[in-house]
Amino acid sequence: MAEPAAQTAFAEEALTHLDTLYRGALRLTHDPDQAQDLVQEAYLRALRYQHSYQQGTNMKAWLFAIMRNLFWDRFKGSRKDDVSLDDVGEFVLYDKLRDEGARPESDVLDKIAASEVVAAVDKLPPLHREVVVLVDVEGFSYKDAAQALGVPIGTVMSRLHRARQQLQKSLYDYAVESGIVRPGGMTQVSQQ
């Protein structure tokens, strides 16, 4: 065990990443209580294994790796191969909106409530969801995301690509269901 002062310094630095870990845990578990349990256990484990953390490397990625590994152990029995995304093909929301006359296309995005965007992220399978959380929400580089997830950078890129396709498909479906977009017709994006 480290000296008390060193341990306190380590804990303080680790706690600066708490929001990232909590948000990640929340997106993975969908439950605030389970997210807190997961994060607490991750911090205790990090403290126990702090000797394996190399100073100067990315502590946030290291902590996230501990948290998501605990998630997979606890909730998925370490089985990471049993989830897949439906093949939506090359779904490009921009092209779809453009074809349907929604101009400017970006205005459609402003009409979609934040809660619907979160719901679309939550619908992604966990292996794809965690990559969106790391890269799009927390701003991790592909390299740091690869470190946190324990996969090659190419896997980060392919999962991210597929996740974004699915995400765009979900947002498009919502935009159609809620009348923001009318498929096949000239869509008017009304100003609120």
Binding site: L18, D19, L21, Y22, R23, L26, R27, P32, Q36, V39, L93, S106, L109, D110, I112, A114, S115, V117, V118, V121, V132, V133, D136, V137, E138, G139, R164, L167, Q168
Partner: peptide
């Protein structure tokens, strides 16, 4: 814009 929307929608949760 899409990336920004995803970020801003998901990053408002903070640890209590």
């Amino acid at each position: 814009h899409l990336k920004r929307v995803v970020k801003h929608s998901c990053d408002c949760d903070t640890a209590p």
